[in-house]
Amino acid sequence: MDAAIRNGHGMTKLDDLQFVAPDTAEVEIAFRNVTKRFGNLVAVDNLSLDIHRGQMVALLGKTGCGKSTMFNMISGLMAPSEGEVEVMGQQPFRNFNWYRGKMAIVFQTDRLLPWRTAVKNVEIGLETLGIAPAERRDRAMHWLETLGLKGHENDYPHALSGGMRQRVSISRAFATDAELLLCDEPFSALDEITSKRLRTEFARLVRENGKTAVFITHSIDEAFDIGDRIVVLKRPAEIAHDLRMSDSVSSEDREHIRRTIHASLAA
């Protein structure tokens, strides 16, 4: 680890790096002075963060730093203790049903319904949108094929491998065509090669379909593969670095960034 980073200069240097133009698109997700407590434990501490439409943000942080808690507040499954979380101009916890069809989640584990076949699992979101059965099936089949699961549509989850199951769950998220995709370490349970292939595929699909995506991870490599923007969190969910990445970032700079992130995660 180089000395400049260790004595603190590295941080300043890193924060000065501006890799892409400032955000002009509208704000899709806003954290305003958000604190979340569980009893005495502060899981998120006075966090402010804007995520803009069309961004693909990797939230990177060590285990237990409050990533899932942030995620749950974005998805409306949890209310902030203080401050405001706004997604598309609404409050997710309060106006829970407003987001029907507007956000989709890929969870850490596949969370497939064991009593439904692969294609029926993909259809669940479309059912809540009241889409007719024939179209539901077409759309579900389209996404299963896109993720390489043609021929497995009628398999029950127990007959699929872990990687295949996670692909079904990605299909399920894309099928509703929601503009916001939330992912909580979706590939962390898979082997490295499958994980790498799926996240590259995932990043490509997000870009091609013009989605906004928040991708939680504790792996620096994964954050680099996925994010246009990498938000590094320290405990309890405070921002350590906020980095914009683009293809023009030189490989030396990348290496430098990687080492700096590594250092602040290790701290």
Partner: peptide, 24 residues
């Protein structure tokens, strides 16, 4: 709970939640 949260994340109606999640 995880499965139920997954179904909830799609914002189903009460009826849909019951038929797609609770009943099976």
């Amino acid at each position: 709970k995880d499965l139920s949260e997954m179904v909830m994340s799609f914002r189903p109606s009460r009826r849909k939640y019951f038929s797609a999640m609770v009943l099976p």
